[in-house]
């Protein structure tokens, strides 16, 4: 299995522990990743609110490059997934696609409109097969109670994400947690917003969202929350102390990147998975899974 790898900015920026963890896990699973040369940001929905054409053209450029590699696209970011899917959805309009291709022509690129970028989460379920994970699982996670947190862009809007064709995508994270042998802590907020997009605009509201979700699952007895979205991770982990002080309570809920949870189940050490780089200590969780002696 080989993919054109689209890591996204945050996996090498604000959440630098994600990139190596994802690479290591994919490598051990036999999923070969070849990074798209000179890939650009998807626009994260931010560029699109000001200049949709520019944002969509950037995505078409990445897709065209992957097509040239002859490989399907794999991403490790919910936000990138959503923005790529939405851009792709709009480019189903042949006139719009032609307009975008006219801009790409200068660089000698052309996008066919046929790419289907997929998050590693979907790939594990749809291409790899969750049952194929079993032989790689060496660490018992039964005692570990994990709450899913999707990130808005990988669940909505359903039309752009082809949910009608792939209804299992709406339960994908729970399916993965279950396949890894951990215990699912279900909660209503799992598909809600983490607050990251308004962090610099209305920090109070952003912190209220972090506080609400993390304290809710903490009170349900979760040991950790797992997310396929590094932007959610930035807010839920990096800003959790601030959210806790705004909520006037302690929370201390470790937030795991999805590949880190997979890696833990595969017996990798917390250190090599970058858990030491988290703001909220993962110590108690490490003790629980026996990763810390």
């Amino acid at each position: 299995m080989k993919y054109a790898f689209f890591p996204g900015c945050v996996s090498q920026g604000g959440a630098p522990e994600l990139y190596p963890a994802a690479r290591m896990v994919c490598d051990r699973l036999g999923i070969e990743l070849e990074e798209i040369p000179g890939w650009t940001c998807t626009g994260a929905g931010v560029i699109q609110e000001k200049n949709q054409l520019f944002g969509d053209t950037l995505n078409a450029r990445n897709f065209a490059k992957a097509e040239r590699m002859g490989l399907p696209i794999l991403t490790i970011c919910s936000t990138c997934q959503g923005v790529m899917s939405q851009a792709n959805h709009r480019m189903r309009n042949p006139e719009y696609l032609a307009e975008i291709n006219s801009y790409l022509a200068e660089e000698g690129l052309e996008y066919s409109g046929n790419s289907e970028p997929k998050h590693l989460l979907w790939i594990l379920i749809e291409d790899y097969g969750l049952d194929q994970l079993a032989p790689h699982i060496t660490r018992q996670l039964t005692e570990l109670k994990v709450a899913p947190f999707y990130g808005c862009y990988i669940v909505r809007p359903t039309e752009a994400l082809d949910i009608a064709e792939h209804p299992e995508r709406q339960q994908s994270l729970e399916m993965l947690i279950d396949a890894l042998g951990a215990t699912i802590i279900d909660f209503e907020g799992k598909t809600r917003c983490c607050g990251f997009p308004i962090l610099t605009i209305n920090e109070r509201n952003s912190m209220a969202m972090v506080g609400k979700h993390t304290s809710e699952v903490k009170d349900l007895g979760a040991d950790a929350m797992v997310t396929p979205c590094p932007l959610c991770h930035l807010n839920l982990d990096g800003f959790q102390p601030k959210a806790a002080s705004q909520a006037r309570r302690s929370i201390d809920l470790p937030i795991l990147h999805m590949p880190q949870l997979i890696g833990l189940a595969m017996g990798m050490s917390p250190t090599e998975l970058g858990l030491k780089k988290h703001i909220v200590s993962t110590g108690p969780l490490e003790v629980k899974v026996g990763g810390r002696r």
Binding site: C9, V10, G14, C41, G43, A44, V46, E49, F54
Partner: peptide, 24 residues
């Protein structure tokens, strides 16, 4: 935020996460 984000990507291709919040 929107302006700084667009400009960062328009000039370097990727997001400059260190400077974005400062500019916002």
């Amino acid at each position: 935020h929107t302006d700084a984000f667009t400009e960062s990507v328009g000039h370097s291709g990727r997001l400059d996460e260190l400077r974005l919040p400062i500019k916002s």
